[in-house]
Simulated scan of single mutants.
Amino acid sequence: MNSLQQQLLDVNGITLSLYTAGPSAGRPLWLLHGFPECWHSWRQQIGPLTAAGYRVLIPEMRGYGQSSAPRDPAAYDLITVCGDIQAAMDLLGHSEACVVGHDWGAPIAWHLALLEPQRVKAVVGMAVPFGGRPRQPAIDMMRQHYAGRFHYILHFQQPGVAEQEMDADIPRTLRMMMHNTSAAVPKDFFLQEKPAGAGLFDGMQDPGMLPPWCDVAAFNHYLQTFTGRGFHGALNWYRNFERNWQRTEALADKHIEQPALFLLGDKDPVGTLEAYTLKQMPKRIANLEQHLLSDCGHWIQNEQAAEVNRLLLAFLSRHYAV
């Protein structure tokens, strides 16, 4: 970790905070974090990947940390966020790359593979599968299916509502999110029955402690990401399902042709929420390798770091060797 360097890049109309490590001549390997996380969520991958000779690049995604966090939700659609990474690659002179994404970082990785078939040589998604462009915006399907009932994504739609609850106590919010999507929590946690107007944490108890995979030092990095700015930028990612659907029309019939790796924890609630997409994924990715990790929740690269590193390095050795 001592070899990490940070730089602020002016790209795509924003400031993008970027952490880098590893040999300058190493093949570029981008690690894209999800919600509500930070660049430091890849802390257990940096050492093994740089030791293998890769140049690791870890941005603080738009809306997080020291990167810009526009107020307008429309500034966070998939194509725009992909543009941040594409512009950074251009600025750094990357003619080839491998892209790895977890949670919301996974859709960015999948779409970069679609948008950049020549530059992106291999792609890895963790937790969130790729099933292609749906027939209608996913948010419309959610509203139909969960009419009159609580769903966390529906709860996030109105700007300011979720922020009020989550920003009020950022350490509590992070503890609750970390614990309640870890391996110890049933898969159907986010499907619990609550009325549509309920709060995100209604019916939940603050554990008052950190999960085993996140120590105090790491937790402080998460806190720094949101302290002073809150969650508005991170939540704006969830307010673009219709805009994402509109802006990806040209990609509707495209398949991911690059070698692809997908990792999912067996106790990750996303596996339940995205069951249909998981079935569709092999139809949309030509060269797909999949693994279900045992006793693992949503925070896969930290809950099962050794296994993730083993699978990732093996995949890279076959498809994106140094």
Results as ranks from 00 to 15, higher is better:
A218F: 04
F190Y: 14
Q164S: 15
A198W: 06
F201P: 00
F189E: 08
Q224D: 13
M142P: 05
E116M: 12
M142R: 11
D202A: 14
Q158N: 13
H179S: 10
R143C: 05
G197T: 14
L210M: 10
P117R: 04
P212A: 14
P129D: 08
M166S: 03
R119S: 00
D140C: 03
G125N: 11
L191S: 13
R119A: 00
C214N: 07
Q158S: 11
E163D: 15
V124N: 01
F226L: 06
R135G: 14
Q144L: 09
Q118P: 01
M204S: 05
D215L: 10
A168M: 09
T225S: 12
Y152N: 05
Q118H: 07
I139V: 14
Q224E: 12
A122S: 12
F130A: 09
Q224R: 13
P195R: 11
A196I: 08
A127K: 01
G160R: 14
F189P: 01
P137R: 02
K187G: 15
M204N: 00
H179P: 03
D169K: 10
H221T: 08
Y146S: 06
R175F: 09
V120D: 00
G203P: 11
R135P: 00
E163V: 10
Q205V: 15
T227Y: 12
G160E: 06
L223M: 13
Q157N: 12
I170Y: 03
Q144V: 07
A183G: 02
G148T: 03
P212W: 13
V128L: 12
Q157E: 15
V216Y: 04
K194A: 03
A184T: 13
M178S: 10
L115P: 00
F190N: 09
L200H: 09
R119K: 13
D202H: 05
R175G: 06
G125Y: 05
A183F: 11
M141H: 07
F190K: 05
K121D: 01
D206C: 10
L115Y: 00
Q136I: 11
N220H: 14
M176S: 03
A127H: 02
P171I: 06
D202V: 08
T173S: 15
P211C: 08
Q136E: 15
Y146P: 03
A168T: 10
V124W: 00
K121W: 00
D140M: 08
E193T: 13
L210S: 08
Y222N: 06
A122Q: 01
Q158G: 02
P212Y: 13
G203Y: 09
V161H: 04
V128N: 05
F189L: 06
P117I: 03
N220C: 05
I153V: 15
K194Q: 07
F189C: 03
E116Q: 14
D215I: 08
A218M: 10
M142S: 06
A138F: 04
V216G: 03
F150V: 06
P159L: 07
P129F: 09
P171D: 13
R149W: 04
Q164L: 15
Q205K: 14
Q158Y: 02
T173Q: 04
A162I: 13
F189A: 02
A147V: 12
V128R: 03
A122I: 01
I170E: 02
A217M: 05
C214R: 01
D202C: 12
F156T: 03
E163R: 14
F190I: 13
R135Y: 04
P212K: 11
